[in-house]
């Protein structure tokens, strides 16, 4: 296990400290230890990957950063200030946007209504305060285009888009609303190899736009393609923490899955690497 101090010494493009830092954070549900002693840093223009198998505590970690759950011990620092997030709204207001794997959007609503959901721009005042529909439509189209997503029709229900497209819309939404930190919950889990590549490209685009990204995944080769820092979780505790130049893909994979599963994994990995590059 690499000490946290080594990761702190290596700083990415960001000037100053991390945007979000977890220091020895723990979370318990009754007598169940969901997460214990986990540390993580997110820097502007960097991608911090959180890797772990099912039940490792990835979801708990994401819920703490997103403001859905409060941590029970340890510190959550935002811009170096110790914070307890009260709600998802609170997290959003502090510039932390979370894109969930399955509940990112409302399927029956048009793309433009989804894009602005919860942050709708209005015109007029008093009883005549109304949605600025023209602005919403135009901004949606422009913001998606800037992320490299050229959508046919912003009026179509978002449920008619493919899984990858929906993820990309959700990422573009977070970028547009000035998120400083983007938390992505298994963005490639339900996707085919090719669509995963597209999503990873938008993740990299968000990083290049200067955001700090937390990428939650159980797929080490996806993580290694884009990540700068890697935090490994196993059964609720942190089993490893590395920077990109201190670990190779093989080592990362080995740390995630031991022994017998390895042969199978490396086989899957070679195939996927061939397709995405």
């Amino acid at each position: 296990m690499t000490a946290r101090s080594t990761t702190a010494a290596v700083d990415g493009a960001a000037a100053g400290g991390p945007l979000v830092e977890l220091d020895n954070v723990s979370k318990y549900y009754g007598n169940i230890r969901a997460l214990e002693g986990v540390s993580l840093e997110v820097h502007a223009g960097g991608i911090s990957c959180v890797l772990g198998d099912n039940g490792a505590g990835k979801s708990t970690l994401i819920k703490i950063v997103a403001g859905l759950h409060r941590h029970d011990a340890g510190d959550l620092l935002i811009d170096g200030v110790r914070t307890v997030l009260a709600s998802p709204r609170d997290a959003l207001d502090r510039g932390i946007a979370t894109v969930y794997q399955d509940l990112a959007v409302v399927p029956l609503m048009p793309v433009w209504r989804n894009f602005f959901l919860g942050s709708e721009p209005t015109r007029g005042s008093g009883p005549f305060r109304r949605l600025d529909v023209a602005l919403m439509r135009e901004t949606t189209r422009a913001a998606l285009l800037r992320m490299g997503i050229d959508l046919r029709d912003v009026d179509q229900p978002i449920g008619t888009l493919s899984g990858g497209e929906r993820q990309c819309v959700a990422i573009a939404r977070a970028v547009h609303f000035g998120a400083k930190v983007l938390v992505l919950d298994e963005p490639t889990a339900a996707l085919g190899v090719k669509q995963s590549g597209v999503v990873l490209k938008y993740v990299a685009a968000a990083r290049d736009a200067g955001l700090g990204v937390v990428l939650i995944t159980h797929n080490p080769h996806h993580a290694f393609l884009v990540g700068d820092r890697f935090t490994l979780l196993k059964r609720g505790i942190m089993s490893g923490s590395h920077t990109k130049d201190s670990i190779t893909l093989d080592e990362l994979t080995r740390e995630m899955a031991g022994g017998s599963e390895l042969a199978e994994l490396s086989h899957e990995l070679e195939r996927a690497m061939g397709d995405t590059s």
């Binding site: 997103a66 859905l68 998802p88 709204r89 959003l92 979370t98 969930y100 509940l103 990112a104 959007v105 409302v106 399927p107 029956l108 609503m109 209504r113 959901l117 919860g118 942050s119």
Partner: peptide, 13 residues
Amino acid sequence: AVGGNAEAARAVG
């Protein structure tokens, strides 16, 4: 949004 997907609605504030 609340009728279509309450969890998603809550998550975006």
